[in-house]
């Protein structure tokens, strides 16, 4: 693990803020902690907590990655059986996938792996041979000893999207001792801030590397004595792109067509209560387009949203303004 410690020695970093960042899941994953009061864990304790959290994240990711041949999802996708036992970790992610499907009215659909691979036009690493099993229904049943998934043999699941937000939220739950904690799972960010605690977040501008569309200054609110939880996630069509048959496509499949979604939105960022909700709703807004997407976001009363359209317009939901730095 390559870790970068930003606290301890740097005098210009926020006092008692520690960041440990590493490469994981093909991107960058970080744990950021702040301990300001004397009775909080020390910086060295925070460093060890952050590193152990990253190690745990790595183990979860290894179980959920279709690019790891021995992972739970790879073994499920390779199984020829109709009913397959799955691990508790994969069952928890698929539980969330069901909720995300409901939250998005079916826009988030984990059965679109083969449609995605067909759109890519090639079977890349971990993809196997794209096939169409026809029936894309699946269900889970639990016994006292195990959880099983039942689906049409050959139906392969794609949890690439839903797993990252779930991982960020799950890791954040380990950091309850800190008044401010942030888990960044390669852009899907889980946040918890005590009342009065503030943290600044950037929303990357995909048109110019290293620049932001906006900065959000989040503040912890008093929610009946509970700490404030936020989730911040971005979905877009400008990173995973490829040219195929003379047209440019991307990886976000519209379940209504089975093809990459073509709407006026090229990037959607959502601020919600959890990272997994933010990820699901960001993807929904992007696939539905700006008009239907903003309506859907208003229905879910998200804390904020920033959409970038193909014409360069930046659209904000009204609730976003209070967070703009």
């Amino acid at each position: 693990m390559t870790a970068m410690l930003m606290a301890d020695t740097s005098s210009d970093v926020e006092p008692d803020t520690l960041s440990v960042v590493t490469n994981m899941m093909g991107g960058t994953v970080g744990v950021h902690l702040r301990a300001t009061a004397d009775d909080q864990p020390s910086t060295s304790q925070a460093g060890e907590t952050a590193r152990s959290t990253l190690r745990r994240l790595q183990r979860w990711a290894d179980r959920l990655s279709r690019f790891v041949g021995s992972s739970d999802i790879a073994r499920l996708n390779d199984s020829p059986d109709e009913r397959v036992p799955i691990s508790a970790t994969l069952a928890a992610v698929l539980d969330w996938a069901r909720q995300a499907e409901s939250l998005s009215d079916g826009v988030v659909d984990v059965t679109l792996l083969d449609a995605r691979l067909r759109a890519e036009g090639a079977a890349g690493p971990g993809s196997g041979n794209p096939s169409d099993p026809g029936d894309r229904s699946w269900s889970m049943d639990r016994t006292s000893r195990a959880t099983f998934i039942r689906r049409t043999p050959g139906l392969r699941l794609d949890i690439d999207g839903v797993a990252k937000g779930w991982l960020a939220d799950r890791a954040l739950a380990r950091l309850g001792a800190y008044p401010a904690a942030v888990v960044d799972a390669d852009g899907d960010v889980a946040i918890r801030l005590d009342p009065g605690q503030r943290w600044r977040f950037g929303v990357a501008d995909p048109r110019t590397m290293g620049t932001d569309l906006a900065e959000l200054d989040l503040t912890g609110r008093d929610e009946g004595g509970r700490r404030t939880g936020f989730g911040l996630a971005t979905s877009g069509t400008t990173v995973h792109r490829w040219a195929h048959d003379g047209r440019t496509d991307h990886h976000l499949i519209d379940p209504r067509t089975g093809r990459p979604a073509h709407t006026d939105v090229v990037q959607a960022t959502v601020l919600a209560r959890t990272a997994r909700e933010a990820e699901a709703l960001a993807k929904t807004a992007l696939i539905l387009g700006s008009v239907a997407g903003l309506e859907r976001l208003a229905q879910h009363d998200v804390d904020g949203a920033i959409l970038l359209t193909e014409t360069g317009r930046v659209l904000l939901t009204p609730a976003t303004a209070r967070w703009l730095a």
């Binding site: 210009d12 970093v13 960058t28 959920l64 690019f67 797993a163 899907d188 995909p206 900065e215 971005t234």
Partner: peptide, 18 residues
């Protein structure tokens, strides 16, 4: 007092999925 550098965490499109 030196002005502390704010640790900004950026949300972005992921480089890759798990």
């Amino acid at each position: 007092t030196p002005k502390p550098r704010v640790v900004v965490v950026t949300t972005r499109q992921s480089g890759a999925k798990p």
